[in-house]
């Protein structure tokens, strides 16, 4: 069984050979081979004894499945491990990448407190354009790149959801002469 996993920014390829009958598996990650015996303590908890050929280490791991992969708490550290082969996730990432990072949109449902720019304004990258409030905390949404404000789609007091484009900015390159 082959897995192509992603942790933080690293891709890791792992080959496993499960032996379900005795709760164990062998795994190869890079050059390293591991013999693992495990116990699924509960739905979210796994205990593993990992033998890397030199020593045996006990690992207490807590795992929860999210839409983007598994969140794993292991020996005091926490990370997200996602499966690069999971096509539904791939698709969602792609959509996200096309939409979110280069637009002015709140990261969670928010209330618009004030709009700092108007249509036609020239903005610098990182300039504050809209102030929103969520969980009683104010945060300024910044222009993702330099450009000209094409339209302002919200007003003070409006509610905004992730994905809503609050201020549409035309990139500077496109109108440079």
């Amino acid at each position: 069984m082959e897995y192509n996993l992603r942790i933080s920014d690293a891709d890791i390829r792992m080959e496993i050979d499960p032996h379900r009958e005795n709760n164990s598996l062998t795994a190869v990650i890079g050059e390293q081979e591991y013999r693992v015996s495990y116990e699924a303590v509960s739905e979210n908890r796994i205990y593993m004894v990992v033998d890397d050929g030199k020593e045996k280490i006990g690992m207490d791991a807590y795992v929860a499945q999210t839409a983007d992969g598994k969140v794993i708490h292991i020996n005091g550290g926490v990370c997200m491990v996602s499966d690069n082969d999971d096509s539904s996730r791939q698709q969602r990432k792609k959509n996200g990448a096309a939409g979110l990072p280069d637009r002015v949109t709140p990261p969670m449902p928010s209330l618009v407190i004030s709009v700092l720019v108007k249509t036609g304004d020239t903005v610098e990258k990182g300039q504050g354009v809209v102030v929103v409030s969520a969980m009683k905390m104010e945060t300024t949404l910044m222009a993702p790149y330099a450009g000209k404000v094409r339209s302002v789609n919200v007003a003070e007091g409006d509610k905004a959801a992730p994905g809503d484009i609050l201020v549409d900015i035309e990139r500077a390159e496109t109108y440079k002469n």
Binding site: Y3, L5, I7, S8, A10, I12, M14, I16, P18, R20, L25, A27, I29, Q32, Y34, V36, Y38, A40, E43, I46, M48, V50, M59, A61, V63, Q65, K70, I72, I74, N75, G77, V78, C79, V81, D83
Partner: peptide, 20 residues
């Protein structure tokens, strides 16, 4: 955050897939 032991996390991932 200091990165966790990535191999341990991958193994936990595999075990969770097998048992979850």
């Amino acid at each position: 955050p200091t990165p966790v032991n990535p191999h341990g996390a991958c193994l936990a991932f595999a075990v969770h897939e097998l048992t979850g």
